[in-house]
């Protein structure tokens, strides 16, 4: 049971769960760095170390960010034809990214502090003594 949970599928599932809560923020951060197409963001996520995040996950999220007014279309000159549409961060997008980043830093701090407080060898440095009286 424990071995199955430690397998690559379980690791990937855990990674997906962790990513679910912060992918929109990471997309904003990547777009703040430089405007891009949807598929380019997939590449950048991979390069950043998130592993392969599918286009089918990224593109609908970009659509949501558009709806929220955090991302807008921009035109990028193309050497092989008419200018191409890419996604860029709006002013609200920058503001939201700042707010989310602060919130994330605070949250991550709490998580890290919690993990750091955990004893490395559970039970080894505590002696449970039952006091009779």
């Amino acid at each position: 049971m424990i071995a199955a949970e430690d397998g690559p599928e379980a690791v990937a599932e855990r990674q997906a769960q962790l990513l679910r809560g912060c992918l929109d923020m990471c997309l904003l951060a990547l777009l703040a760095e430089e405007p891009a197409h949807g598929y380019e963001l997939v590449r950048r996520l991979d390069t950043a170390g998130f592993g392969t995040v599918s286009y089918g996950t990224v593109y609908p999220l970009i659509t949501r960010l558009h709806r929220l007014g955090l991302v807008a279309n921009a035109l990028q000159p193309s050497p092989s034809g008419p200018p191409r549409k890419i996604h860029r961060l709006t002013e609200s997008g920058h503001e939201r990214l700042r707010a989310w980043s602060e919130q994330w830093a605070q949250f991550a701090g709490v998580v890290n502090a919690t993990l750091a407080a955990r004893p490395s060898n559970p039970g080894g440095d505590h002696e449970h003594v039952d006091v009779a009286r």
Binding site: H37, Y39, G81, K85
Partner: peptide
């Protein structure tokens, strides 16, 4: 929706 998706897919195909 189609126009935005087309732009993205055509750019991907172009690359």
């Amino acid at each position: 929706l189609a126009a935005d998706l087309r732009a993205d897919l055509e750019a991907a195909a172009g690359d």
